[in-house]
């Protein structure tokens, strides 16, 4: 059963809840503006892994976009912790780190997709749509 219908008894569609994690305010706002998918609600934005964990517990998102190079707690460590808290969460890494080893590491820690910066709006929307389809 997809989160889009959420199994609601009245058949009402429930929006997917998205948490954005990136240490750049410009990037957080860009990701928030770019998402044009129906049934997607941005429930929070965090600037590092520590903030992400706090917001994750409070907002219970279905989807997370995750930067990797961040102060305090990096994205790889945060992915591991988020998956430990909720193995069902779907995580899209959005990072400038373009080497294969990093992508493999992120996926092994529990990420479900990887999008390199810089990206176009279309690439972002396609990547998030793919993340939703995987649920």
């Amino acid at each position: 059963m997809s989160a889009a219908n959420g199994g609601a008894a009245n058949g009402a569609r429930r929006a997917f809840r998205l948490l954005i994690v990136d240490d750049s305010n410009v990037m957080r706002r860009r990701i928030e503006r770019s998402q044009q998918l129906e049934d997607l609600e941005v429930v929070g934005a965090a600037a590092n892994g520590v903030e992400a964990l706090e917001l994750f517990a409070r907002t219970r998102p279905d989807l997370v976009t995750m930067d990797l190079t961040m102060p305090q707690m990096d994205g790889i460590e945060c992915i591991e912790k988020l998956v430990g808290l909720n193995p069902e969460v779907r995580i899209l890494v959005i990072s400038a780190l373009a080497d294969k080893a990093t992508a493999i590491d992120a996926m092994e820690k529990g990420a479900n997709g990887f999008l390199n910066k810089p990206f176009t709006d279309r690439q972002l929307n396609d990547a998030i749509a793919e993340l939703i389809r995987g649920r």
């Binding site: 410009v26 961040m70 400038a96 780190l97 080497d99 080893a101």
Partner: peptide
């Protein structure tokens, strides 16, 4: 933004330099 541009270009360089090309925030 100026930090993000520097971060993105440096991070992308790991495609050729490999993951032991470690970049800071």
């Amino acid at each position: 933004l100026v930090g993000e541009v520097a971060n993105t270009i440096s991070g992308n360089a790991r495609r050729d330099f490999g993951n032991d090309f470690v970049i800071s925030v």
